[in-house]
Simulated assay, not measured.
Amino acid sequence: MDLNADLGEGFGRWVLTDDDALLHIVTSANVACGFHAGDPLTLRRVTALAAAGGVRIGAQVSYRDLAGFGRREIDLPPEELAAEVAYQIGALRVFAQAAGADVAYVKPHGALYHRAGRDPVQAAAVIEGATIAGVGVLLTQRGSTLDLLAAEAGLRVIGEAFADRGYLPDGHLVPRGLPGALLGPAEAVAQAVSLAADGVVTAIDGTVTPVAAESICVHGDGPDAVAVAASIRSALIERGIDVEAFS
């Protein structure tokens, strides 16, 4: 099972994630590309650390929304969104290649992740942007609009699930701000093991719900992020589950 985390989400003197520690735990790094977080020096530093540690590098693309941390939907014309997605990937690729690696996949962030998951126009724009930039792998939830359209376009999709987010009975995430949206550390570890071992989660109403995933996201912006991520990795290994980047 692959473990991914959103990294490089600081900006200037503001530091959000403990990138150094998390890069010793995860196998794939979703690196912010400057539109919702991240700055050129942060991109360069994180990609260099990831490349040195053998961690796969992905472009974490978003709406241009630094003030809202990419969590506000923006109605961009599709051609503009496609260009902005390609632009972000290109910025990250410069630093990844300088470190002897490359951008292996694309993962939308925040509002763009959820909008592209249900909106075929925005999903198509994300796919076009990735294609312009020459990246043929997307990380997203199975069964989403982005998943289905990317597969139709010939891109490879890596199914993603979340260790520390609550699920609805239909397999969708509980929206942030609602009760049950965020799980505590022990619950996150248990859910990660359930996902990796059995391919299921227990939804907020107690329903056991199938969730197909090749990669589990461990969010890096909480106060216990590093400890939770380390506990998840240890719990998976104890269950005999190999923790490695998706092949």
Score class of each variant (00 low, 15 high):
Asn4Glu: 12
Gly136Cys: 12
Ala153Trp: 05
Gly110His: 08
Ala86Glu: 07
Ala192Ser: 07
Asp20Met: 01
Tyr63Gly: 03
Ala50Leu: 13
Leu92Asp: 00
Ile74Cys: 06
Ser234Arg: 15
Leu7Asp: 10
Lys107Pro: 07
Ala130Met: 02
Leu183Met: 09
Phe162His: 08
Ala186Asp: 11
Leu149Asn: 04
Asp170Thr: 00
Gly159Asn: 15
Ala235Leu: 09
Arg64Thr: 15
Pro77Ile: 02
Val126Ile: 08
Ala125Glu: 03
Leu92Tyr: 00
Glu152Asn: 10
Leu155Cys: 02
Arg176Trp: 09
Pro108Cys: 12
Ile204Leu: 15
Glu73Met: 09
Thr42Glu: 10
Thr42Asn: 08
Phe95Thr: 03
Gly166Glu: 07
Arg239Trp: 07
Lys107Asn: 05
Asp242Ser: 15
Asp147Phe: 01
Ala192Pro: 00
Ala230Ile: 12
Glu80Asn: 05
Leu76Tyr: 15
Gly68Val: 06
Leu149His: 02
Ile204Cys: 13
Ala161Ile: 06
Leu41His: 12
Val208Trp: 03
Thr202Asn: 03
Gln88Asn: 10
Ala52Pro: 09
Arg156Trp: 00
Val137Tyr: 00
Leu178Ala: 13
Ala153Val: 04
Glu160Asn: 11
Val15Pro: 06
Thr145Asp: 01
Pro77Trp: 02
Glu84Ala: 15
Tyr87Ala: 07
Gly68Leu: 02
Val193Ala: 03
His36Val: 00
Ile127Ala: 01
Val228Asp: 11
Pro223Asp: 14
Asp18Val: 04
Ser247His: 14
Ala86Ser: 14
Phe69Asp: 05
Arg64Asp: 15
Arg142Glu: 15
Asp39Leu: 01
Val193Met: 11
Gln122Ile: 15
Gly206Thr: 00
Phe11Ala: 06
Leu148Ile: 13
Arg239Cys: 08
Arg115Met: 14
Arg233Thr: 05
Val174Tyr: 00
Pro210Leu: 05
Phe162Gln: 05
His172Gly: 15
Gly159Ile: 10
Val228Cys: 10
Gly184Leu: 14
Leu76Trp: 15
Asp6Gln: 08
Ala190Val: 06
Gly58Lys: 00
Ala235Pro: 11
